[in-house]
Amino acid sequence: MSETATMAKEILSVKDLNAWYGESHILHGITINVRQGEVVTLLGRNGAGKTTTLKSIMGIVKNRKGSVMFEGSELIGRTSNQIARQGIAFCPEERGIFASLNVEENLELPPVVRPGGMTVPDIYKLFPNLDERRKSQGTKLSGGEQQMLAIGRILRTGAPLLLLDEPTEGLAPVIVQQIGRIIRTLKEKGFTILLVEQNFHFASTVADRHYVIEHGEVVHSMNNDEIAANRDKLEHFLGI
């Protein structure tokens, strides 16, 4: 799969992406690309600009310059709802489960943007816990269940590219393993995933390639099999 992935065409190509929050200049020319069917991680410390990169691709950070090409069309200048309709789905770091909606309503909220997404029964098969709790209020779930709901609800939309922002944050090791299995399953199903992570041990179990981000720039990139050789460098960048 990884050999074919390296051959596959680019689905997302970010060039010289700059972004601002108010007056502060956060991203200083990020350049990354993701090929169809790949899982790519953005590694880096807190505040390095990983989340801002995802939010700028998604159009949630509006003040941005440079180029974000998705399946050959430019996303800079479009609003986040238009970008979502193009076929990109976003799972935020804070999970964004709606308290006023039950599990089922949360799951069915994001509109279908393209045919061929997973069906609700498929999603319940992937996340059996959610099936049992479909009438519970979204925020009554445990942290792990909320994370599964946050991932599950974007699989229905048919978007081929998933942006996952720190899906393992604050979760128990056994749940982290479960999330890892889910990401590998999604890759097998053909999803392309851009993942933000601080935990490179976890990242190395799911990803094909990694970019290291520091002060709003890409400072290093490597294939997953090079991670052991680059261990010292990574520990330096991630401040471990």
Partner: peptide, 13 residues
């Protein structure tokens, strides 16, 4: 949902 988190609802399309 939009009352709670308009930014995310917009990012869903």
């Amino acid at each position: 949902a939009a009352t709670e988190n308009p930014v995310l609802v917009q990012a869903f399309g």
